[in-house]
Amino acid sequence: MPKLVDHDARRLHLVKVTWRVIAREGIDGATMREIATRAGFANGALKPYFGSKDELLAASFQHVFNLTNERTEQSTAGLRGVEALRAFCHEVLPLDEQRILEARIVIPFWQKALTDPDKAQQHEQDMNQWRAQMLGYLQQARDDGGITRQLDDIQVVRHLLSTTMGAQIMAVLYPAEFSPAQQVEALEAYLEMLRQAPPE
């Protein structure tokens, strides 16, 4: 009787192996042969699941994005307003080894998205999801009186995305200058500014 193969499980296994290979050895070190070896497969066994390294990179990025979303869902459960916004940002910031490894996947994906319309569209869809969540938390914070500074909320979201996503690059390149404590301090300073009305 032929052996049954769970193709979805195998694809997920390959994605998990791929993003860890890329995170630790860089995009150039993540050859299809190396990924197959790490996954315990023959080199040609990857072709039915991913036709190229680019496809694996896109799937790995989506996996990392999904992991972040799972964490944000858990960390914001039961929270609203400023507290939910803070918890959300903490899950995007590279505050531990896991999230730094994830940043090492995000960075080469961004590079590919500069010239690949499909990857650019994938990234835009993901960011639109995050923007909608953050705008919702900001509206809650204004309703609750937790934010009183009169700024356009979309500008606030743009700043927070620039801060959190920029930290992914800086924490990988300059870990001593962008430690977890420094990242949290910078976020708190901005959230505190949002809470306070400007002096008249």
Results as ranks from 00 to 15, higher is better:
52 S>M: 04
199 P>W: 05
168 Q>T: 02
184 V>S: 09
30 A>E: 08
191 L>M: 14
19 W>V: 02
188 E>G: 11
193 M>F: 15
51 G>K: 07
41 F>Q: 12
37 T>G: 05
192 E>Y: 09
157 V>T: 07
137 Y>H: 14
200 E>Y: 02
90 H>W: 00
187 L>M: 06
42 A>S: 04
54 D>M: 06
74 Q>E: 15
65 F>K: 06
91 E>R: 02
19 W>F: 14
60 S>H: 06
121 Q>C: 07
119 K>M: 15
30 A>T: 06
185 E>T: 11
28 D>H: 02
78 G>R: 01
187 L>A: 09
22 I>T: 01
29 G>D: 07
141 A>L: 03
38 R>N: 05
49 Y>P: 01
97 E>Q: 15
82 V>D: 12
106 V>W: 14
118 D>G: 12
85 L>R: 06
56 L>D: 11
104 R>E: 04
17 V>C: 12
10 R>Q: 00
166 G>A: 14
184 V>G: 09
9 A>Y: 00
148 T>H: 05
147 I>N: 03
103 A>S: 15
83 E>R: 03
90 H>P: 00
22 I>N: 07
109 F>Q: 09
30 A>K: 13
117 P>D: 05
138 L>V: 09
21 V>W: 05
4 L>I: 00
23 A>F: 04
186 A>K: 03
167 A>N: 06
88 F>K: 01
145 G>I: 07
171 A>H: 10
141 A>C: 07
42 A>M: 07
177 E>F: 13
143 D>Y: 03
68 T>L: 06
124 E>G: 04
164 T>E: 03
120 A>Q: 15
123 H>Q: 10
25 E>S: 03
41 F>D: 08
14 L>G: 08
64 V>W: 00
60 S>E: 13
144 D>M: 10
136 G>L: 01
118 D>T: 12
49 Y>I: 08
125 Q>L: 14
120 A>I: 10
6 D>V: 02
48 P>S: 11
154 I>M: 06
184 V>T: 15
66 N>T: 13
175 P>C: 15
163 T>C: 07
160 L>K: 03
